[in-house]
Design a protein around this nucleic acid. Structure first.
Lengths: 331, 331
DNA sequence: CCCTGCTGGTGAAACGTTCTACCCATAGGG
DNA sequence: CCCTATGGGTAGAACGTTTCACCAGCAGGG
């Protein structure tokens, strides 16, 4: 394994100079720089990141912790994160919490051990304690798709209450009177707020929000959506269904169609996130669009700005508004 | 920032003992272990991964480099990887090459600098030189969804020629005589082999393989599929279309339906990968199913076995067979 | 009572960088 | 001609672990 010392010896300079060539090439005379660079190439030297992290006290790595990497919503967020990070020379360590606080904890511990520069996280619960602990260890945290826990922190979110309200308002405007909300675990903030938005829409239409039937699925996947639909099919069908995300909605859709229920004639259906596949499904799916890729990009830009310019950095709380996309499933 | 020394002082032992508590708890007397663990909790100590990597010479981290993290095929592979890795206490650094060899190179360099224990990669090209260079640096490499470059290397793959052959044989058995193959970049091995399989199927049916019209899309996404379909719609329509993956197929499907072409009555359509959304699309999509999650799991198990038991490890070349899933799009 | 072996523990030397203090020319200002 | 500044370089001390050699005590065998 070739180290900076070998390079130094080979180029006839001191290790310090090699380090300068690597980190501050301007500070070293062109001729010597040439020689060092040649030595690096000839010896196939590659810098030992851990050594440099150890000495420098910080690494060029950030962590990304999401709830479900199988959900296209999060992959698109991750794509935005990755693009910005790699533009600025940062590596990304990905953690998938799969909705389990335990797993999230383990992932955060790994990130802390790696002394990542910062962490982007869509928290799966409301416990901000461990995030505060990260900050105490000098690791910046930016919340993604989640409002800020505290003022001295950046966060990029989308207004989920407004989204839920708009979705259900759309169903009501279409004439539906009985609405079911198929949600994911109510430990997830997004689910709670979208449901609350749905209730607000009922209230807005002069209906009793308590009338909203809520079916809570164990996960936010298509399979869980199918199960939830089975529960609906067991009783009297509602006129409309609002799902907390598109995966659930696609599962509900599949189960309804298989049972001979027509969408939207018998039951109208709307999802949330507007993932690519929503437009391509059997009956194309109405949904609430979010600036997903931008969410990832902007969060990463904020995080890296906070890391690289700690003095000039101003914390920001950004809140996007979702947008209704009406398709066949609510025609 | 609290270090192992602070813990040692607080517990009244030497740093070496703390290290033993961390890494070989059996070697230290229960009473002292208790004391050290208490100190760790009280001080909120978290081990500095870089320091331990530096000293130990290797880290508990692996790299995963995929071609397109936006493709559900790769997310499912990643899920398999992540599950095994986290079971065994490894972290995963994710790299998305987005089909660009440059980006792949940059990602591999980052992984090399991090001194990852090993790398799982679905190579985007056929150049194995940089992978060999990784091995020279003591980083094990396991190929995912790609046959081995060399005997002293593990690889987990799926028989793409057989898959292409089965897919097109299915189209032919259904009565189609003119078949178009919509493929991704022919720099990607999977695309080449699936096309070759398609040709083999034509040969097998007594047709001229040169008759297979091949449309090469720039990327393997739904959008690229739509573009490719536009090209098809400009001329005489074939009786059947075979797409190199489901994203392309979903794009082709969308464009055909929008143009008023009936699927499968006018044109039969089959994709590849059998991602979840294939079954849920407008016209449910026939596809070739692969053991995607298993691909990730097994590759990771092989890699970590190679890392943790280098002496007993036996290199394996695993080749799965894909399975035809016939749905509406080829009824 | 000496020797041997075991258990539980210590001290200090690495690992490969980065960074600070320092050095030596040479150049220019007064 | 001295004094200071500057550019380009060096030496060596960190950074926080792990590991290896070593040691102290103690038990048991001869």
């Amino acid at each position: 394994m070739v180290s900076i010392k070998d390079v130094a010896a080979h180029a006839g300079v001191s290790p310090g100079t090699v380090s300068n060539v690597l980190n501050r090439p301007g500070k070293v005379a062109p001729a010597t720089r040439e020689r060092v660079e040649a030595a690096i190439r000839e010896l196939g030297f590659v810098r030992h990141g851990s050594a440099s992290t150890l000495r420098a006290g910080h690494s060029r790595t950030i962590g990304l912790s999401v709830i479900d990497i199988g959900n296209p919503f999060f992959t698109e967020v991750a794509a935005g994160v990755e693009d910005v990070a790699s533009e600025l020379g940062y590596a990304v360590i990905l953690g998938n919490s799969a909705g389990s606080p335990d797993k999230e904890d383990r992932n955060l511990r790994v990130l802390a051990e790696h002394r990542v520069r910062g962490v982007l996280i869509t928290p799966s619960g409301e416990d901000s304690g461990r995030l505060d602990r990260l900050r105490e260890h000098g690791i910046s945290v930016v919340l993604v798709d989640h409002p800020a826990h505290r003022p001295d922190q950046c966060a990029v979110a989308v207004d989920d209450v407004a989204g839920g309200r708009a979705a259900v308002a759309h169903l009501l405007a279409r004439g539906a009177r009985s609405v079911v909300c198929v949600t994911g675990p109510l430990t997830i903030r997004q689910c709670v707020e979208r449901r609350d938005g749905a209730r607000a829409a009922l209230r807005g239409a002069g209906l009793d929000p308590a009338e909203l039937r809520v079916v809570e699925a164990a996960t936010m996947t298509a399979r869980a959506g199918e199960k939830a639909a089975a529960e609906l099919l067991a009783g009297a069908l509602p006129e409309a269904v609002f799902c907390a995300n598109d995966l659930l909605a696609l599962g509900v859709l599949r189960a309804l169609l298989r049972a001979g229920v027509r969408v939207p004639e018998d039951v109208a259906l709307i999802g949330y996130d507007d993932i690519d596949f929503a437009a391509a499904s059997t009956v194309s799916l109405s949904s609430m669009r979010q600036p997903t890729y931008q969410l990832g990009r902007i969060a990463t830009e904020l995080l890296l700005d906070e890391c690289d310019n700690p003095d000039t950095h101003a914390h920001q709380h950004i809140m996007f508004q979702p947008e209704l996309v009406a398709r066949e499933s609510t025609q």
